[in-house]
Design a protein around this nucleic acid. Structure first.
Length: 629
DNA sequence: TTAGGGTTAG
């Protein structure tokens, strides 16, 4: 039996017995897994032993009962949640102390919603007990808008918590979550003492705001960095499209002997996915295995995405299959992976499998599903999924979903329908939606509708350089040179310059990067010439329309020849014995696509190209996209 | 009590 009968409390040594029993129950609570049902069992013991008024015990009990993400969060026998139960237990304590109040406030705060504030207001109205610093760190966690934070901050000032490290650190974090970098910095600057947590929170503030130089400046001036501050910096680089800097930091971190955990690895995985370099991906994967394999679904989902973006759909699927716990992220990542490689049917099959589980798809899942249909020309299926999303899953389509639908219809040549959908959508179309229409106009050579799309596009995204390039491409294809000049003049007037095309390719001695128009080594120049000769003999004729300048055909040919992916291909032919993998920063042009097709046949090589849209796998003269891109 | 993480269209 766990406890002696109640009567044993009534001894001359009652206080001593109670203390011993409290210790026993605390140990019991420490050993319990958390969740509502185990908590209820221990609560029964607490009541039997007459300790239901112990603030300390009850606070610990509530912390256990309200542990989130446990299946026991809902008790089917009483139809109550752990919060209903905790509230009830709390109300039975006649003199709750500040710690007990705070425990309940924190539990509500972690769940979101207004209850945390209501409870605090009740506490403040009573006037006793007075809040403690813990109370405010819990309240700041409950805030989701900076104004709420400012209101609570006024209370901290009044009660003298304005120099408390924990309170101020949580306040910085709140401003970071709300995107208020300046407010976060003001708190940071006025703190009498700061610790590594204050610094790291501030590094994150700058990283979220895209100011990686300011983040780096703080990071460099931190005398004692820990794993979290290193990881914050690394992830910041990855999130701001600076994968090389992220991986460089990862190497430095390892060299400095800083420990690494799953969060660090996720940052590195993410960076590697952006670079698209497969041998690096494999290295990081084996590092993950050294750390015990992808134990969390977070790492697994990141790995799936990484392998897909590095061109290996097979390895992405292997990771997915091996995952023992799958969730909406892992399914969405895998469906999106099939989509970017043009495997629409496989994406739809996996989506069906997902529907048979108890994991409901979310709006991101549908982006993947719709993109898969769009990249494979499965128009009716896409239309059907768009309806299912709304009717069955009650997900209202976002502008991104409309962009997919406009792309789906437009790509398939149903331009008017796409335009009609766009005009009747209930939310404001963003640049992506008009961009999809403009892209479809390019494919189907509809310069008139392109003008309509471009007009709107320039309104919502006046500095989107790609839009001007796309429009001038469309005019160029229609040989409307005056219009081409007009667009180019507009670009110049706005101080916009074309992003230089850039490709990188995996060689034996690392990754080689090429820019369009680079001066080439003799070796590469020769390899390129030989390739073009062989291709011409096999029927390749340069698509001069791809050049948007009104210059002679000879000059156009020279421009095309220097496109970075062609140079990368020539380099790959020289250095790689088998498959050639190229990553490009912009969209591949029609001419390069054609040459890749022909080259895969005449050079008898598999070529995999990732551009900023999707993957193309070239093999024996054909592309996996089936010319539908 | 307080800081770092995964899937998103053109």
């Amino acid at each position: 039996m766990l406890h002696p009968p109640l009567s044993s409390n009534i001894t001359t040594n009652g206080a001593y017995t109670a203390a011993v029993e409290e210790q026993q129950l605390l140990r019991l609570l420490d050993g319990c897994t958390g969740g509502i049902r185990p908590a209820k069992r221990i609560h029964a013991h607490i009541i039997i032993r007459g300790l239901a008024q112990s603030n300390f015990l009850i606070a610990k009990l509530l912390r256990k009962a309200t542990t989130i993400h446990r299946p026991e969060d809902y008790d089917t026998t009483t139809s109550s949640t752990s919060m209903d139960y905790s509230q009830l237990v709390f109300e039975q304590v006649s003199r709750p102390n500040a710690f007990l109040w705070t425990t309940l406030i924190r539990a509500y705060a972690l769940r979101g919603g207004p209850e945390a504030f209501l409870l605090y207001n009740r506490m403040a109205a009573l006037g006793t007990p007075r809040p403690i610093s813990f109370t405010f760190s819990a309240l700041f966690k409950a805030c989701s808008a900076s104004q709420q934070g400012k209101d609570i901050q006024a209370h901290t000032l009044k009660l003298g918590f304005d120099s408390d490290l924990y309170v101020q650190n949580t306040l910085i974090d709140l401003y970071v979550r709300c995107g208020c970098v300046n407010d976060a910095r003001r708190v940071f600057d006025t703190m009498p003492t700061r610790d590594i947590i204050s610094w790291t929170a501030m590094i994150v503030a700058y990283a979220k705001g895209g100011d990686m130089e300011a983040a780096r400046c703080l990071f460099d001036s931190l005398p004692h960095k820990d794993m979290v501050s290193w990881t914050a910096m690394l992830s910041g680089y990855a999130q701001n499209a600076k994968p090389q800097e992220a991986l460089q930091l990862f190497e430095e971190m390892k060299a400095a002997g800083v420990p690494i955990d799953e969060v660090t690895l996720v940052g590195a995985i993410n960076a590697c996915a952006q670079l698209g370099v497969l041998h690096l991906a494999r290295q990081i994967h084996s590092l993950v295995m050294d750390y015990g394999g992808p134990e969390s679904v977070v790492v697994g989902s990141a790995l799936i995405d990484m392998y897909a973006k590095c061109g290996s759909l097979k390895e992405a699927y292997q990771v997915f299959e091996k995952m023992t716990v799958k969730n909406v992220f892992s399914y969405s990542a895998m469906i999106g992976s099939f989509a970017m490689h043009g495997h629409g049917r496989a994406a739809l099959r996996l989506f069906s499998q997902m529907q048979a589980t108890d994991i409901p798809p979310n709006s991101v899942t549908f982006i993947g599903v719709l993109a898969a249909c769009s990249h494979t020309g499965l128009v009716e299926e896409g239309v059907q999924c768009f309806a299912t999303m709304q009717d069955e899953y009650r997900i209202s389509p976002s502008a991104d979903h409309y962009a997919c639908m406009v792309d789906l219809l437009g790509r398939a040549g149903r331009l008017e329908e796409a335009h009609e959908l766009l005009k009747t959508m209930p939310i404001k179309p963003h640049a992506g939606v008009w961009g999809a229409l403009l892209g479809a106009c390019r494919i189907h050579g509809n310069a008139n509708l392109a003008e309509v799309a471009a007009k709107h596009l320039f309104e919502v995204e006046p500095d989107g350089i790609g839009n001007y390039v796309l429009l001038s491409n469309i005019y160029a294809a229609a040989k409307r040179w005056d219009d081409v000049r007009r667009v180019r003049k507009e670009m110049r007037g706005r101080g916009l310059r074309k992003n230089p095309g850039c490709s990188w390719v995996e060689g034996k001695e690392g990754v080689q990067k090429f820019f369009a128009g680079d001066v080439l080594s003799e070796e590469i120049e020769t390899a390129l010439e030989e390739l073009l000769e062989k291709a011409s003999a096999a029927g390749y004729v340069p698509k001069l329309d791809c050049v948007v300048y009104d210059v002679s055909d000879g000059e156009k040919e020279q421009v095309l020849k220097r496109h970075s992916e062609k140079v990368a291909l020539a380099f790959g032919l020289l250095t790689m014995e088998s498959r050639i993998r190229i990553v490009k920063n912009l969209r591949m042009c029609d001419d390069c696509h054609l040459l890749m097709c022909v080259a895969s046949r005449v050079a008898e090589r598999e070529i995999v190209v990732r551009d900023n849209m999707r993957f193309h796998h070239f093999k024996q003269g054909a592309c996996s996209c089936g010319e539908f891109w």
